[in-house]
Simulated assay, not measured.
Amino acid sequence: MEDRIIIEHKLKDRKSFKDIARELGKDPTTIAKEVKNHIQLRNTGC
Results as ranks from 00 to 15, higher is better:
23 E>M: 08
4 R>T: 04
26 K>F: 04
5 I>Q: 15
10 K>P: 07
38 H>W: 02
11 L>M: 14
44 T>V: 07
42 R>L: 14
42 R>K: 14
33 K>V: 06
8 E>V: 06
4 R>M: 11
45 G>N: 09
12 K>F: 10
26 K>H: 04
35 V>G: 04
45 G>L: 12
11 L>F: 06
3 D>L: 08
2 E>W: 08
21 A>R: 01
24 L>P: 02
36 K>E: 14
19 D>H: 11
22 R>E: 15
1 M>N: 13
26 K>M: 05
15 K>E: 01
21 A>C: 07
7 I>T: 08
28 P>W: 06
5 I>S: 12
32 A>M: 04
23 E>P: 03
33 K>F: 09
31 I>A: 00
2 E>N: 13
32 A>H: 03
16 S>R: 04
21 A>D: 02
32 A>E: 01
28 P>F: 07
34 E>S: 14
3 D>G: 01
6 I>L: 14
8 E>H: 10
35 V>R: 02
4 R>I: 02
5 I>M: 14
34 E>R: 11
43 N>V: 11
10 K>F: 11
30 T>H: 12
33 K>L: 13
17 F>G: 01
36 K>C: 09
26 K>I: 00
27 D>E: 13
27 D>S: 10
8 E>C: 06
33 K>R: 15
10 K>V: 07
1 M>G: 15
22 R>W: 09
32 A>R: 05
3 D>P: 02
33 K>Q: 12
5 I>K: 15
41 L>Y: 12
45 G>W: 07
11 L>W: 03
27 D>I: 03
21 A>F: 02
3 D>I: 08
3 D>Q: 12
43 N>P: 10
23 E>Q: 08
1 M>K: 13
19 D>P: 03
26 K>E: 01
18 K>T: 05
37 N>P: 00
35 V>E: 03
34 E>L: 13
30 T>Q: 13
17 F>R: 00
45 G>E: 12
43 N>L: 14
44 T>I: 10
46 C>E: 15
10 K>W: 13
37 N>W: 04
9 H>S: 13
26 K>V: 01
29 T>Y: 11
40 Q>R: 06
19 D>V: 10
28 P>H: 09
40 Q>Y: 03
2 E>P: 02
15 K>W: 04
17 F>A: 03
13 D>W: 08
42 R>I: 13
15 K>S: 05
39 I>K: 08
34 E>K: 10
14 R>V: 05
7 I>R: 03
14 R>Q: 10
18 K>Y: 01
20 I>Y: 01
40 Q>K: 05
28 P>L: 09
37 N>C: 00
28 P>I: 08
31 I>P: 00
7 I>L: 08
35 V>L: 05
40 Q>G: 01
8 E>T: 10
24 L>T: 07
1 M>Q: 12
15 K>V: 00
44 T>H: 05
45 G>T: 12
32 A>I: 00
7 I>K: 06
17 F>H: 10
34 E>G: 04
15 K>Q: 05
